[in-house]
Amino acid sequence: MMSTGTNRIMDEFAKLMTDAAGAAQGVRREAETAFHAQAERWLNSLDVVRREEFDVVREMALKALDENEALRAKIEALEAKLSGDGK
């Protein structure tokens, strides 16, 4: 009889621990979500850009620099041709 009562108590204790662990995981997930939301608000208030956005703008800037170099080379070639024709 004693072992049946002990087993029931142990089963109840195990169920309580399982429920507590599940609740702890839920609280942890909520805390992480709240933290991420707060961190995002804080970063947005600092005007910090995401890595993907930075990379896109960086690629655009590099492309613009390449285009400027190409245009500069064309202008220099035209200037050289014009100054050569004028002589």
Results as ranks from 00 to 15, higher is better:
45 S>G: 08
87 K>L: 15
86 G>Y: 13
66 D>F: 00
48 V>Q: 15
60 M>S: 13
22 G>V: 08
55 D>Q: 00
31 A>M: 08
18 T>V: 10
65 L>Q: 11
44 N>D: 02
61 A>W: 01
19 D>G: 03
45 S>C: 00
33 T>I: 12
54 F>G: 10
23 A>D: 08
13 F>V: 03
74 K>I: 03
6 T>V: 07
33 T>Q: 12
16 L>K: 10
31 A>K: 02
72 R>C: 03
27 V>C: 07
54 F>A: 15
57 V>K: 14
22 G>T: 03
18 T>S: 13
7 N>R: 02
17 M>G: 14
66 D>K: 11
87 K>V: 15
87 K>M: 09
2 M>I: 10
65 L>C: 11
49 V>P: 13
19 D>H: 02
47 D>N: 12
63 K>I: 08
62 L>R: 14
29 R>N: 12
78 L>H: 05
87 K>G: 12
4 T>M: 11
13 F>Q: 02
70 A>T: 03
51 R>V: 01
73 A>W: 06
51 R>G: 02
75 I>G: 08
25 Q>Y: 05
23 A>R: 09
42 W>A: 15
33 T>D: 12
28 R>V: 02
78 L>Y: 02
15 K>Y: 08
31 A>G: 02
79 E>Q: 12
64 A>S: 04
74 K>V: 01
52 E>A: 09
28 R>F: 00
21 A>H: 06
75 I>N: 02
55 D>L: 14
36 H>Q: 12
35 F>K: 05
55 D>P: 10
38 Q>I: 09
15 K>T: 13
11 D>V: 01
49 V>K: 10
33 T>P: 05
14 A>M: 08
35 F>G: 05
36 H>A: 09
74 K>N: 09
85 D>H: 07
70 A>P: 05
30 E>C: 06
2 M>L: 04
21 A>N: 11
63 K>A: 15
56 V>C: 03
17 M>A: 14
35 F>E: 11
36 H>N: 14
49 V>A: 03
49 V>E: 15
60 M>Q: 14
82 L>E: 11
28 R>M: 00
65 L>I: 15
70 A>Y: 04
6 T>R: 10
39 A>D: 14
40 E>Q: 15
48 V>A: 14
18 T>R: 04
4 T>K: 14
74 K>S: 11
82 L>G: 08
44 N>S: 01
82 L>W: 07
8 R>N: 12
25 Q>D: 07
85 D>W: 10
42 W>R: 14
32 E>M: 09
73 A>H: 02
32 E>C: 00
23 A>E: 05
40 E>N: 14
38 Q>N: 04
26 G>S: 04
23 A>K: 00
6 T>S: 03
55 D>F: 08
37 A>E: 15
48 V>M: 15
51 R>P: 08
58 R>I: 06
80 A>K: 14
41 R>T: 06
77 A>C: 01
21 A>F: 11
50 R>A: 04
27 V>T: 12
69 E>G: 01
37 A>G: 10
54 F>M: 08
1 M>W: 05
44 N>F: 07
82 L>N: 08
9 I>G: 00
5 G>P: 00
64 A>E: 01
48 V>G: 10
28 R>Y: 05
28 R>H: 08
27 V>Q: 14
21 A>Y: 09
49 V>T: 13
87 K>N: 06
72 R>H: 06
17 M>C: 13
41 R>F: 06
